[in-house]
Design a protein around this nucleic acid. Structure first.
Lengths: 133, 133
DNA sequence: TTGATATTGAGAATGAATATCAATACTATC
DNA sequence: GATAGTATTGATATTCATTCTCAATATCAA
């Protein structure tokens, strides 16, 4: 029998994974794997690109990071709140605000049910220009 | 002064563009450029891949097609309603329902304003399993 | 019909993301 | 603390979607 609540990820702790987690946490908004890797290298870290991709994928799988696709690129961000939430993102500087939206959750569920759809998930993100841009 | 209502696109009519528009219209859900091209070739059309990409980009720019990014792939769909709308998409068979959502529009605008964001746009799509899947 | 030019398409080029695989580092165990 | 077993790393090759190039061609207005 499988145990859904058990984290099936026996992850070893390495300075590389810590570096990626830390670097991601220091960023305000969403970053690409490429950009994060470039930043780490600039800061003197010899970490490899493939490792950054893997670390980010793991963080996302563990629920420690959010990710979204923009213009054919995957962007990641350290997760503040642990539960389900959405984002308000500045399309100029990348500044991001995490937002909860009970109304939207309810709406999505209702719309799905209305059309006979089950197991509904949704993608909801708001893009704009923040007060500093 | 610019004229936002004027179509700044002096497009020439070619059988290739018509073929892409028609093929897209015949599909139920979202399709990738690659898939659409493969379908056209299978149907005997000698149309080139680059042309399909260009035609789809033009349709999207002209507001005749919607597009969204899934797993690093751009997907297109012929637009039913001309105005702003969202989608309810079956993640199994791709069946898509266009949905309007005044409540969500209002919510997005309110959330953006609340945090000092201007020129807010939003991405709202619901994925689920339709009644046939 | 003709001329100006937008469009096409085969293939090259780009760029993000993943696979490969030997060398290395982490963890539990003794 | 030493050691074996194995997950992880990283330089590089590879895949794959998308865009670019540019000569040949088709479209549209005159």
């Amino acid at each position: 029998m499988s145990e859904p609540t058990m984290s099936g990820a026996p992850r070893r702790r390495t300075w590389q994974r810590d570096a990626v987690r830390d670097a991601l946490g220091e960023r305000d908004g969403f970053v690409s794997a490429q950009a994060l890797h470039a930043g780490l290298r600039e800061a003197g870290s010899p970490i490899g690109l493939a490792t950054v991709y893997r670390a980010l994928a793991d963080l996302a799988a563990d629920g420690a990071a959010d990710h979204l696709q923009v213009e054919g690129e995957a962007l990641y961000r350290a997760c503040g709140s642990s539960g389900h939430h959405h984002h308000l993102i500045c399309r100029s500087c990348g500044k991001t605000v995490e937002i909860g939206a009970a109304e939207v959750e309810a709406w999505a569920k209702a719309v799905a049910a209305e059309h006979g759809f089950r197991e509904a998930e949704h993608v909801v993100d708001v893009f704009g220009l923040c007060s500093d841009c």
